[in-house]
């Protein structure tokens, strides 16, 4: 391994990435086209299995040529899928942009205020946010906003619909707080592991402590875990998007996905 040229290593990694991407697309297609295998209620048959595999191959082939599939009437769904994808991407971007700084600040606080009332409160809050199912958070937040609007007449945010204005506040808040809680917990775990290292003890023995120790020794070691936490938070946010999109009627890919399950075979498409 050590004697390998950088170009060869890069080529190998790029090949692995391509294979991973292809496997991911094949897996998504295999899930989305399951209705072809099951038909309308009956158990899978050998004939349906053939049609299922053919559909997957055809779809993946079409995807490579920029064809996203067709709807029940046989019309291409490129435009509607692209519009839904754009809306989902907007929501994901907004949520990630809020979650990152919030999560880093929260994680820093969690690690510094480890004991006492504040430490307990911050820890409890992050655990609670990670534990609450997305729909519970959505319903609680929507209920709170609706109650405030009814009692005071002040509209803080919209509780339904798509728009890059007040409509964005609630879905972003739900997704971003979950993402931030995930980042905070991941950073806390990483920081606890770093603080237990020998070189931190050595630095302490030499008289370094407090913010100086954190800035010079802990922070540089946290860069890689921070990247991992950020990527993990994006995954948490993406996972929550399906239900949030559906409940807020955002009109993104999440709602389309749920239409596939209620609509049956037709909507092949959401891949």
């Amino acid at each position: 391994m050590s004697g390998e040229s950088p170009a060869r290593t890069l080529a190998r990694e790029a090949m692995l990435l391509l294979i991973t991407l292809a496997a991911g697309v094949a897996l998504v297609a295999a899930i989305v086209f399951l209705p072809v295998l099951f038909g309308r209620g009956g158990p899978p048959s050998a004939e349906r299995l053939g049609a299922y595999l053919q559909t997957i191959v055809g779809y993946v082939g079409g995807l490579a040529q920029g064809n996203l599939g067709s709807n029940a009437r046989g019309r291409p769904v490129n435009n509607e899928m692209l519009q839904a994808a754009r809306r989902t991407l907007e929501l994901l971007t907004a949520s990630t942009l809020v979650a990152l700084p919030l999560g880093v600040a929260w994680g820093g606080l969690l690690a510094t205020v480890r004991r006492g009332v504040w430490g307990g409160l911050l820890f409890s809050l992050s655990t609670l946010l990670i534990s609450l199912p997305s729909f519970v958070a959505v319903l609680l937040l929507s209920e709170a906003v609706a109650t405030i609007t009814l009692r005071t007449g002040v509209r803080l945010a919209f509780v339904q619909g798509y728009g890059l204005d007040g409509h964005l506040i609630l879905p972003t808040a739900v997704l971003a707080t979950r993402g931030a809680a995930f980042i905070a917990r991941s950073l806390q775990v990483s920081q606890e592991q770093i603080m237990a290292q020998d070189w931190i003890r050595a630095a302490r023995a030499k008289g370094l402590g407090g913010l100086g120790l954190w800035r010079r020794h802990v922070l540089p070691a946290l860069r890689l875990p921070l990247l991992g936490a950020a990527l993990g938070a994006v995954r948490v946010i993406v996972a929550g998007t399906i239900i949030v999109d559906y409940l807020y009627n955002w009109g993104g890919l999440g709602r389309r996905l749920l239409q596939v399950t209620s609509g049956g075979v037709e909507a092949h498409l959401c891949a």
Partner: peptide
């Protein structure tokens, strides 16, 4: 890499 690209809810919902 391929598996974790698919959200759990998406993976479970259709089947």
């Amino acid at each position: 890499g391929a598996w974790s690209a698919v959200p759990s809810l998406f993976f479970a919902l259709i089947p």
